[in-house]
Write a protein that binds this DNA or RNA. Structure first.
Length: 331
DNA sequence: AAAAAAGGCAACCGCCCCTAT
DNA sequence: CATAGGGGCGGTTGCCTTTTT
């Protein structure tokens, strides 16, 4: 029945992380690697719970994290995977290696749910349960629009790059000087710091041009652009059909082009931080998902997709998924 | 211009799983 | 085999920002 909190609450700092704390954490992890979180607060002197350190690292500081706007491609993947897997954010995140489960979860709760609701209400004045609607949303459209799929390869400045810059500045200047000396690098408070970080990312991403807050156009219906952006994922079904057919004949024969859409990353491998469980670890959960998705069992394409998603145990699955996503733009 | 409401997101909490002992 | 503890996950909270009234 659960466990007591991982650490005493007395003397533990909570709330937003400061740049200084980030720097301490990052520099520690750069030296010692991620892992053994329990020892991190002790060794760094951070007044943070080990869990808090881990979360801060995995959700924010970890290299290769893509922040900011979700591309239509990513939206589509999330919608579809959520329809398949339910709220298994870690599993979903494993197919979007540059996104954290927390980010995906937040994006789902704040953006996609609403879009789906709008879509559903536009299609059906008598909305049914959400799962069904999202499944329909993801699978019923025959649109082959691939608007914006290639935008998935846009690059973001990772948070850690920013942190690294902070760190370099910190190292170069006298380590214990006041913030004044580092004022060009260290902002005064966390909110500013975070905003700066985000802006950096957004600037880097501005070429993508996707504005998730298109909802400001008001009205009851989602805009055509939004609509298409989401539907652009719909052709995944076709791709998966191809994939599964291919898999059934010769395993791995579909592996081409070692492309990864923006370097999904190197970093996960060596710092031992897993954003999420590897897909094969979800095999045992497959039963549950099948039970939960009984209402979908007649949907052949989804069943194949599900089967492929869960049964395929090759380690490079996420990359293959990304390749497929790229391929989908061809169709 | 000010206040209220809504939106967005980082972080926390509690439970569960896995592994070392 | 049983147990304790670390790590991971999903749900939720609360603060800050943006939009609306």
């Amino acid at each position: 029945m659960g466990r007591p909190p991982c650490c005493d609450k007395v003397g533990i700092k909570k709330g937003p992380w400061t740049p200084e704390e980030d720097i301490i954490l990052v520099s520690y992890i750069q030296q010692h690697g991620a892992g053994n979180w329990r020892s991190v607060p002790t060794n760094t002197g951070l007044l943070r719970c080990s869990k808090s350190c881990r979360l801060r690292w995995t959700n924010y500081l970890r290299p290769g994290i893509k922040r900011g706007n979700f591309t239509p491609h990513e939206e589509g993947m999330i919608i579809h995977l959520q329809a398949l897997l339910g709220n298994k954010w870690a599993a979903i995140a494993s197919y979007l290696p540059q996104r954290t489960d927390n980010d995906i979860k937040n994006y789902w709760n704040t953006h996609l749910k609403k879009k789906l609701n709008k879509f559903q209400s536009a299609l059906d004045p008598h909305p049914s349960i959400e799962r069904k609607s999202s499944l329909e949303f993801a699978s019923t459209s025959s649109s082959t629009s691939a608007v914006g799929l290639n935008q998935a390869s846009s690059t973001y400045a990772s948070s850690t790059e920013n942190i690294s810059r902070l760190l370099q500045g910190w190292m170069r200047s006298s380590p214990k000087t006041t913030n004044d000396n580092n004022s060009s690098l260290l902002l005064k408070d966390t909110s500013q710091y975070q905003k700066w970080d985000q802006n950096t990312s957004l600037d880097a991403d501005s070429s993508a041009g996707y504005k998730p807050k298109a909802e400001q156009e008001g009205g009851n219906l989602i805009s055509h652009e939004e609509f298409e952006s989401i539907l652009s994922f719909a052709n995944i079904n076709n791709v998966v059909w191809d994939k599964s057919t291919c898999e059934s004949t010769s395993k791995g024969a579909c592996q081409d082009s070692g492309n990864d859409d923006d370097g999904d990353d190197d970093d996960d491998g060596d710092d031992k931080v897993n954003v999420a469980m590897a897909p094969e670890n979800y095999k045992k959960q497959k039963v549950d998902h099948h039970n939960n998705n009984n209402n979908n069992k007649n949907n052949q394409p989804l069943s194949f997709l599900e089967k492929w998603l869960f049964d395929e145990s090759s380690s490079g699955q996420a990359e293959e998924m990304n390749q497929m996503m790229e391929l989908s733009s061809v169709f």
